[in-house]
Write a protein that binds this DNA or RNA. Sequence first.
RNA 1: GUGGCCUUAGUGUAGUGGUAACACAACAGAUUGUGAUUCUGUUAUUAGGGGUUCAAUUCCCCUAGGCCACCCCA
Length: 415
Amino acid sequence: MKYSIPRGTKDILPADSPLWQKLEAICRHVFGAYNYHEIRTPVFEKTELFTRSIGNTTDIVKKEMYEFKDRKGRSLCLRPEETAPVVRAGLENGLIRPDQVTKLYYIGPMFRYERPQAGRQRQFHQAGVEVFGSADPLIDAEVILMNVQLFEALGLMDLEVNMNSVGCPKCRPEFRQQLKAYFKDNISKMCDDCRDRFEHNPLRILDCKEAKCQKFINSAPASVDTLCADCKTHFEEVIKMLDYQEAKVVVNKRLVRGLDYYNRTTFEVVAKSLGAQNAISGGGRYDDLVAELGGKPTPAVGFAIGIERVIEVLKKSEIALAQQPKVKIFFAALGDEARKLAFDLVIGYRERFINADMDYLGKSLKSQLKLADKLGAEKVIILGEDELKKGYGIIKDMKTSKQEEVKLDSLAEVM
RNA sequence: GUGGCCUUAGUGUAGUGGUAACACAACAGAUUGUGAUUCUGUUAUUAGGGGUUCAAUUCCCCUAGGCCACCCCA
């Protein structure tokens, strides 16, 4: 094959696209019910937007960005995530204001230069929401509940919703210190990755999967125990609201999120059926990002779902696969005269938005009927030279195989 | 970026150091204008490049891609 698809990307073929459409429609439906409005931003942005927001030390920025220079030498990046672009767009267009609540959602492709694997591609799709302007725990709860409702609406089962609080710039340094103090003595006995994390990002040690590290991690201090008074109250309020709504959310003290901008509430939903890359959505609060990107200090919360991963779960669980549209009426014509008439009639049906089709290859009647059958046609109109001469066509019901003769001028009204 | 497995017709799979098999799909036909069945036929120089050999699809190396895991993340 001379041309093949770039590594880590996938074509979404007609067999799958109805499922995508269904998923997107349900996202819009649920987000709409919570009064979120769609925003669409460019797939590329100035590189600096991402280095500022996501954090210079994260893998995303260090080695996963599709960066390029345009013809004027400006450094641009294919977006690896959409929170920063939404903040940028919201600020630039006056949508985000400290004194009002703004609710936005987006659906679209993201790009990260990673080694492909199950549930991980270089171009993948996310649907996400962002709320700006409120620090109220109700908003944290609302966003989590909306996420849960979305998955329920899709019929997903065996999900686990984890949440945690990572504190704020006031109390997180304290937690970091405690962690480093705790691991200091034993870090030499832990894995290479953890030793690296100890230096650069001690919080990440908490979700290491190595057995030899686990025994030390188990009794490590938890972020929720070192929260400052404000963060603690906030966290408790969120939990209270979720309990009140009977949401099945589990507090997971080990949950750490990768992006630098998160503070206080973080959460993620994992699907047990998926394998290593099993997080199907993730998000949290990021109260300092808007100011970091040049706006007035404005609290915010958001999350994103990984569409490919959700699609995988949907396929595995055999949840009602959406159907391709089927042909309602098919015209089998023989001879130039008849084909011309058939074309005229087909167009007429289509103008009324009735799915109609015909043969374009000059096939035999037998082949045309075979095709009609394959397309799932309900009715076939047979137009042969003999019929044409006599001024009628044959209408055949493909289910019952019954045929009847119908006058040509009433063929436009069969369906 | 690291590691393991893999790469044969449209799809899914056999197989052997001597010039490729099966299933499904697709297309065509079965006395010439009627669909799901049945029968027949048609459809591949075995990912690309290099090497070993009289000879490679089968052995070795490289490249590309796929799958899976680590890292990380949705």
